[in-house]
Design a protein around this nucleic acid. Sequence first.
DNA 1: GATACTAATGACACCGAGTGCCGATTGGAA
DNA 2: TTCCAATCGGCACTCGGTGTCATTAGTATC
Lengths: 214, 214
Amino acid sequence: MTLDADRLEADAPAPAPESQRARMGRAPVTTHGELSHLALGLFLERGFDKTTVDDIVRAAGIGRRTFFRYFASKNDLPWGDFDRLLDEMRAHLAAMPDDIPLMDALREAVVDFNRFPDEELTFHRERMWLLLNVPSLVAHSTLRYASWRQVIAEYVARRLGVGIDSLTPQAIAWSCLGLCLAAYEQWLAHDDADLLELLDASFRRLAAAYSSAA
Amino acid sequence: MTLDADRLEADAPAPAPESQRARMGRAPVTTHGELSHLALGLFLERGFDKTTVDDIVRAAGIGRRTFFRYFASKNDLPWGDFDRLLDEMRAHLAAMPDDIPLMDALREAVVDFNRFPDEELTFHRERMWLLLNVPSLVAHSTLRYASWRQVIAEYVARRLGVGIDSLTPQAIAWSCLGLCLAAYEQWLAHDDADLLELLDASFRRLAAAYSSAA
DNA sequence: GATACTAATGACACCGAGTGCCGATTGGAA
DNA sequence: TTCCAATCGGCACTCGGTGTCATTAGTATC
C-alpha cells in the first residue's frame, strides 16, 4: 500500500527524457507524475471537492481533454503508478520461502512492503490522508484495492493449492486488506505512530482474537 | 448485510399509512421503498449505467428534483433502510452472552443476521449482485459499510474494554467485513451455494490459516 | 530542406449526476 | 375559509467525463 510519488513515478518536474527518448510523433507536454504532484498540492490546499478539474488543467497549462488522457478520473490523481507497486509486491511474495506459516508470510510481506525512506513519510502521509478521508476517494479506492487483493489471493491460492477464486484465498485477501486499512487509519490518526508497527500489530491482534478464549 | 426490501422497507406498493398518519403539510407522492423497487427492476433490465435518473423519475411519474429528496444519489437506490438493519445487528450482538469467545460471537451474529426467508432469496441475490458487480455501486458501498464496521467495532471494543477507535476493534471490524464480502462473492458466483454456510466457512478458514503451521 | 508518417494536443459540443432556488400544490389545523 | 406546513417540481447551473476532429510537433525518409 505504499504510495510514494517519488518512488513510483520515476519522472520528476521536467517533461523527462523517459528512459530512451526515441519515439515518433509529438512529444507529451507533461507527465503522469507531474500532474499528480500538482493536483495533490491543490487538494491539500483547497480541499478535494473544491478543486475542479478546470483548476488543475489551468494550473498545469494543459487542455481539459488532455487531462483525461493522463487520468481516467479525478479520483485517480492521488494514486501513483499502482500497478508497478503491485508487481513489486507480487515479486516480494514469490521470493518468500514456503516453509514459514502462511499468515506470517503475509504479515511480513505487507510490513516490509510499506517500508520506505523517512523523507517520503510526510508526502506519503498526505497522500494517504486524502485517500482515507475524502469520501469520493474512499469510495473509489475500493476499485483499486481489488487488484491489491488479487495479488494476495494469488499467493494464498498457490500456497494452499486451491483456485484463486475460491473462498479461502479471497477471504484471507479481503481480511488482509482490512487489517492494512485499519493500521493506516491508526497511523493517520496519531502523529507519533509507526506504520510498520501498526501493520504488524494489526495482523497479530486478529490472530490473538481468534486464539483467545475471551 | 442482509438487504431485503420487503423486510426493510415496511412500505409496500401504496403510498402507505406510514405508522400513524397525522402529519401536517402535503402528503408524499411515493415512498423510499417504492422507488427502490422500481429502480432495481430497471437496473436489472437495462443495466445500471444505461438507466438514467430521468428514466427512473419518468417511470415513477415524479419530478427529477423530487427524486433527489428521496435518495441522495443514484447509488443509494439499491440500498434499503440500512440504518434500521444496523440497529437490529447491534441489538443482536448486545444480546449475546459474554462468555463465548469473541470471534465465535461475531461469526454467529453475522451468520444469524443473514438468515432470511427463502422467498426473498432471489430478490436479495439480485440486489447484492448489483452492489458487488456494478463498479459505481461497489465503490459507493464502501461508504455504507463504514457504519456496518462501526457496529462490529463497538461490540469488540466493549468486550475487550478498549476504545472503539483503537486498533484492535477496528482491525477486527475491517476483517469481518472482508470475510463477509468474500462469502457474498462466492454466493453470487455459485448458484447452488448457501450463504450462511459460506459466511461460517469464511470465518473458520481465516482461523485455520492463523493456527495452521502450513 | 521537403514530404510523409505518427502520436499527442486541445477545442467544441454533448451527456448525466447532483444542487440551489423558488413558486406551486396539497394536506391538516384554527 | 384562512393559515400553516411540508412536499412537489420546474429551471438554471456546476462539474465530471466522453466522442469527434482538426491541429501541432516530433521522427524518418528521400
